[in-house]
């Protein structure tokens, strides 16, 4: 199985988990935090396996750091509402 195919299966599983959380009736931090964490994981997989940053670990860490800060800002604003 290729890296891209493994990534696709993982992305489907992460997306299914997001949908299940949204359908569970959870609200507030109990919904926002795991859903945003799953979003960050999906972004990491796309960068690593679809966009090929697996061959450039330093760049991957840089993108992960930037996206983590962005998602933390999303979480902070979502929880402040």
């Amino acid at each position: 199985m290729t890296r891209a195919t493994k990534a696709w299966i993982l992305l489907l599983a992460l997306s299914a988990a997001s949908t299940a959380l949204a359908a569970s009736g959870l609200i507030g931090a109990a919904l926002a935090l795991p859903v945003l964490a799953l979003s960050g994981l999906k972004a990491h997989v796309i960068l690593r396996d679809y966009l090929g940053l697996v061959v450039a670990p330093g760049w991957l860490r840089g993108f992960d750091l930037g996206l983590s800060l962005l998602i933390l800002a999303f979480a902070g604003l979502a929880l402040a509402a």
Binding site: S18, L21, L36, K42, A43, I46, L47, L51, L70, A78
Partner: peptide, 22 residues
């Protein structure tokens, strides 16, 4: 071309939870 397409995918996984779920 595929890199552009993956970028579109990447933006959507950030946009979807914020606009539709939170």
């Amino acid at each position: 071309g595929a890199a552009f397409w993956h970028m579109v995918d990447l933006v959507w996984v950030l946009l979807f939870p914020v606009v539709y779920l939170l």
